[in-house]
């Protein structure tokens, strides 16, 4: 397992939002976490990446216990995070957003000198940026545009591209398809597939349960801060309870098309 979450609880003050959750993500695997609004999915992600404190339990990256480490230190260990709402640096250009993605890779004292060192590491930066542009050709033409002026889909691509600049082993994504047109969402999911094939471990939180179960290898269903079902994606997609609660298949019909469209329009 690249990521192991071991009996983790997370609280906001006295209010527990995540109860005793355990899950794992292996190399070259997409694991999805589905559940209704307020089930604690985002809270769990924020705790894994160190933006929220873990109340009890432990988080491991490989063999290393990373519980309680600050977010900015986890990046170097190989965790990339695409937060809900994308977290664009809206006043900065697409290129600057990408350059910031590589911030952690050059954190030595020399980096404090400013522009001189930026020239030194330019080759390496260029290679990474080229890689992101290959994955998202659309960003190339937007290079000098302000990130805030991009469309929703482009912003999502930039958010993922920026996270990839950190060269992560493990990528966590929170609602990457939110607010996107169906074809854009498909494009994003297609990319996740490719990243998985390259060996990346991916933890995907999604409201669009159908789409995420389709590309995922395994899935967890969260309810009221707890994991209630855990299975392979194939089994989950055919699980009656899951279908009823998350796939909109009240009548148990075999066709998934109407549900998928309905979800995408949200």
């Amino acid at each position: 397992m690249i990521l192991s979450v071991d009996h983790v609880s997370v609280a906001y003050g006295k209010l527990n939002a995540v109860w005793d959750v355990s899950l794992g993500v292996g190399k070259g695997e997409i694991v999805t976490l589905i559940g209704a609004n307020g089930a604690g999915k985002t809270t769990l992600l924020n705790a894994i990446v160190g933006l929220l404190p873990v109340k009890s339990g432990a988080v491991y990256l490989g063999e290393r216990n990373i519980t309680g480490r600050k977010a900015h230190k986890l990046v170097k260990l190989g965790i990339g995070y695409v937060a809900e709402g994308r977290g664009m640096f809206g006043s900065m250009s697409v290129l600057d957003n990408l350059i910031l993605g590589a911030y952690a890779q050059h954190g030595g004292w020399t980096s404090q000198l400013g522009d001189a060192t930026w020239l030194l590491r330019r080759e390496d930066l260029k290679r990474r940026i080229e890689h992101v542009y290959q994955l998202f050709p659309r960003l190339t033409t937007r290079e000098n545009q302000k990130a805030g002026s991009l469309s929703g889909g482009e912003q999502q691509m930039l958010a993922i591209g920026r996270a990839l600049m950190t060269a992560p082993k493990l990528l966590l994504l929170d609602e990457p398809s939110l607010g996107l047109a169906p074809n854009l969402a498909r494009e994003i999911f297609g990319l996740l597939n490719r990243l998985r094939d390259d060996g990346m471990a991916i933890l995907l939180v999604e409201q669009d349960a159908v789409a995420s179960l389709r590309i995922a290898d395994r899935g967890y269903v969260m309810e009221m801060g707890r994991i209630v079902i855990e299975d392979t994606a194939k089994h989950l997609i055919n699980n009656d309870k899951v279908r009823q609660a998350y796939l909109g298949q009240v009548w148990g019909s075999a066709s998934e098309t109407p549900a998928q469209e309905g979800e995408n329009q949200i």
Binding site: H72, R86, F89, G90, S91, I99, L100, D115
Partner: peptide
């Protein structure tokens, strides 16, 4: 105009995103 300046603006635009990119 330096790396520090980029980090500053990143914090202004989105503090949590800046942290998840390794900015303290």
């Amino acid at each position: 105009g330096s790396r520090m300046g980029r980090a500053m603006r990143a914090i202004r635009d989105s503090e949590s995103a800046s942290q998840s990119l390794g900015i303290n």
